[in-house]
Design a binder for these strands. Sequence first.
DNA 1: AATCGAATAGTCAAGTTTGACTAATCAGGG
DNA 2: CCCTGATTAGTCAAACTTGACTATTCGATT
Lengths: 187, 187
Amino acid sequence: MDLQNRQLLLLGLLRIQTMHGYQLNQFLEEHLDFMTSLKPSTAYYTLERMAAEGLVEAHAEQAGNRPTRQIYAITPAGEIRYRELLRRNLASYDPCESADDIGIAFLADLPPEEARQLLAEKRALIQDRLDKILAAEDRVDAASATHLSLERVKRQHQLDLEWLSEVEAWLERALAQEAEPGSAPEP
Amino acid sequence: MDLQNRQLLLLGLLRIQTMHGYQLNQFLEEHLDFMTSLKPSTAYYTLERMAAEGLVEAHAEQAGNRPTRQIYAITPAGEIRYRELLRRNLASYDPCESADDIGIAFLADLPPEEARQLLAEKRALIQDRLDKILAAEDRVDAASATHLSLERVKRQHQLDLEWLSEVEAWLERALAQEAEPGSAPEP
DNA sequence: AATCGAATAGTCAAGTTTGACTAATCAGGG
DNA sequence: CCCTGATTAGTCAAACTTGACTATTCGATT
């Protein structure tokens, strides 16, 4: 996630309600866990930075005897920026090219049997996450925008399960070819 | 893309052939463009770091009168690390939760007509990229591992196009509901 | 033969990100 | 009433990332 989307997300939340950093982070963890991996430290940094830019205003609050905390509220400049970022986000498309499947390119460097086992572990991980997403889907209003986002993540996981099957098939073929053509097995 | 996958990628390439940084970056841009967004500076940094860790060895080379360049070769320690990283990569799954669709959550904050236009721009972008991927797919050996990776990216784009249709339908419904229930239109 | 632009091969400062750490408060058990 | 572990609310140094920049060489053009 890049800076712009992070700002968009935080501004969007502050627009709904003024909050302090910890509260924001709690909200992110509770409700947006499956969508973003915005770390607490990063959120604090982003808030400070936005405060310096005048997009949000912080005012210190003393609750009981706790360390004073900064309550952030969106400013008019922040509102304008919010709209800009929202427009940019809706009109753009860059699905982080994470190359998290780079290992596939080097699949042939491992003994096929081991590769098969490792891929089975990967499959289990995907399935696990998918189950969690399905459970979460039951809990959100089917007409909400959140549901749309969940739907996307769900399908991505389903797609990756299917794709993994093809990788496994590919591995099987490679294995068969290796055994087949009368070549002496190496010692 | 995180550090580990970056190291895996660079080690994997250096295993095939010793190279200098610029050469690596060229290769990445030419052949792995659609898979990774590893920036040149980042590659240089990662190489230095791996050299410091003893995973690769650099030796300076003077070609003609050009500035001396560092030729990197993988070391035995690098080979071991390569296998570790490959195993970890194959067995893991964390599709960067980029929240690049975060804007959808705030879709209702824009006039529906404008939202529709912005989403149309997004659709055009996806289609564009998909076309490039399809073209690239024709050029790679259908039996290669690269083809598998391309296939995955392709389907992701197709999925996002389908998903976008649903977002548009959702927007349409929201728009209809707004018009419908005898509510006085606000001035 | 001087020049202009592209390619080669990086370097670096400025900005970003995060894991580890701090420090106070509260809730509950012994 | 004191201790312990969880929760609250961050801070910070160290590591990572990248856009902007440098400096040389080569090829082609005028």
